[in-house]
Design a protein around this nucleic acid. Sequence first.
DNA 1: ATCCACACCAAGCAAGTGCTTGGTAGGGTA
DNA 2: TACCCTACCAAGCACTTGCTTGGTGTGGAT
Lengths: 199, 199
Amino acid sequence: MTTREDEAGRNRRAELLGIAAGLFAEKGFKNTTVRDIADASGIQSGSLYHHFDSKESMVDEILSTFQEELFGSYDQILDSVDDARTKLERAVQVSFEAIDRHRHEVAIFQNEADYLGAFERFAYLAERNAQSRAVWITLLDDGVRSGALRADLDIELTYRFIRDTVWVAVKWYRPGGTLTHEHVADQYLHILLDGISHG
Amino acid sequence: MTTREDEAGRNRRAELLGIAAGLFAEKGFKNTTVRDIADASGIQSGSLYHHFDSKESMVDEILSTFQEELFGSYDQILDSVDDARTKLERAVQVSFEAIDRHRHEVAIFQNEADYLGAFERFAYLAERNAQSRAVWITLLDDGVRSGALRADLDIELTYRFIRDTVWVAVKWYRPGGTLTHEHVADQYLHILLDGISHG
DNA sequence: ATCCACACCAAGCAAGTGCTTGGTAGGGTA
DNA sequence: TACCCTACCAAGCACTTGCTTGGTGTGGAT
């Protein structure tokens, strides 16, 4: 009942969720057993059910918490007064930052969205997907309209290429390695905006 | 023993493998049960073991057969007398063609390479990965050396971006839809080579 | 007519799955 | 002291998993 106890409880929850997120990202949701999570946490599998209703509710909490934060960042960009090109650049940068700071969550979303999306409980995943598409399409449309981007772009395909290439980086990017997420974002924007061909 | 029986046997094998590939691609290898495959094939789960040793040997056959074909195509490109830019374009085109013709196989490789690669039996997956990297790095190096590509490219990052964006298209590309794989390859090469920014 | 290989079925086993149950040690509260 | 709450354990239940076993019907060859 006291504040101290609540905090202790929350910390333990967060700790267990972090361990679960790492396993879900590495091995997949279905392929990670409750016993795996318990072993990695140093407790018995049954004890997890003191903190969580089910394995499903663990991913649920992991994904929804992360997405709330991510889309908050996107909204800030859309609401800003920057020009179209700057907004596009910031959206790419924010995405690579998310990969840097929340790689487990990003990986889980990338790998499990299709499977989990089939359950009613995870219907919000499809909504977030549509929301994400809306963000990028808006940025690209504004870019073309303002003259910052080529007028002959296939917007839909361009959106898919950006989305895919950004998020799939979670498969190889490792924070603390030789590459910073800022550097990766810069290089990617250079390729995306200017191409790789000479002149 | 006769040729006719062999052919019938092989056709049935291929048919069952095709069904299995579709399920593995859609639901994941571990997440697809032997009973799922049997149900989709209209037989009992035990009957699959008349044709195959194990579930593992099914993916094995699916992946190794596909990779043999794909890398044959890459080798043809490397051995050709085309200039560097043409080779790069053809490699991209061949990859999108593979997505068009073997989407299940591509999807399985993309999704399961990490998991399966941990087993000795699938060590060849890591080798193929290295081989693929060698192909792209060669193409990019030649491109820079010949002046077709920008000299300031981060080759390693560029390779990752190309690889990721090409193969991840298997997640949304559907043969027989409004987009042909040739169109997608063209658009992608346009973005990759010239960028999306105006002028 | 007999044989036989092939493709399949019906039943079930051992291991692993998510989750439940009844209980306990320990620290804070009244 | 008596009480309660939190975080955990030990055991196990119902179900699913990959795979095995012994058997059956059928079509072609002899």
